[in-house]
Design a protein around this nucleic acid. Structure first.
Lengths: 140, 140
DNA sequence: CGGCATCCTCGTGGATACTG
DNA sequence: CAGTATCCACGAGGATGCCG
């Protein structure tokens, strides 16, 4: 997953002495992890779904088109680890497990929403640009 | 890259008849591609960087910690294809190439910004949750 | 039902070398 | 300088099978 050890910064990839503010551009910036988490499409999808209400494991599986059981399980686990989602086990005969978004998770969901809006608003422009680009007569 | 053929929906992964609103959860939803593009950490990083001003190829390379020449080139190309970034070739002796964010790209940048804010604001909470989770005495 | 373990494929992306 | 092309290693992630 994106949360996995992704630190590929030997700190020698750059000339010594070259330094820029410890910004998002530094490989070890924690903010980068959040970006990675957002990059995880399954995570975002799950978050959006859970923002609408508590859902059970297999129900999520049914709702999210194309997700494998492995990825669902894995993603839920890291979401839980990040405190974005909470897990509740109901010890019925065949066990049932509910997933609910946490307050923290909801704040992230709110921050992600502008992106969804953007996508819906500008997707046409993007596709038009792509068409234009693909049709370009190979400008030197 | 994320923009690559990522369509893994045979439309038969679900029982026939089972249908949900053509939402973000459908694998073929165009919105999903935007999410994928955001998921591309390099793309986001480049976008943020270019939002601050026009930058040249190798300058970007130097600025972004850990990016390979291949990924930079590749990412810039798809950003250009998406109409988010524009490329300008200056035919000097050794050729120079400038990359500039487009108005469309800027709107995306603006939509991404809340995420950066969120990250900076809540990263501590997330890390705390992780620490708690990792220290959990294996409940149930 | 929920979920972990195993296997195995195949795409992502780094390293390297060459060109305009 | 700004790429493109090739090779290759690694790991994400699907498929399958088993367990509590």
């Amino acid at each position: 997953m994106s949360a996995a050890p992704r630190i590929e910064k030997p700190a020698k990839a750059m000339a010594p002495g070259v330094h820029f503010p410890p910004d998002v551009f530094a490989a070890d910036c924690p903010t980068r992890r959040v970006l990675d988490r957002i990059g995880d499409k399954w995570a975002v999808l799950i978050l959006i779904l859970l923002a609408r209400g508590t859902v059970r494991f297999n129900e999520l599986r049914r709702l999210i088109d194309g997700i494998s059981q492995k990825m669902l399980s894995q993603t839920l686990k890291s979401l839980e680890r990040d405190g974005l989602v909470s897990r509740r086990v109901i010890p019925t005969v065949p066990v049932a497990v509910e997933y609910t978004i946490t307050p923290l998770g909801r704040t992230l969901h709110d921050a992600v929403d502008p992106l969804r809006i953007w996508a819906e608003t500008h997707i046409a422009a993007v596709e038009a640009a792509q068409a234009r680009y693909d049709a370009a007569p190979r400008q030197g």
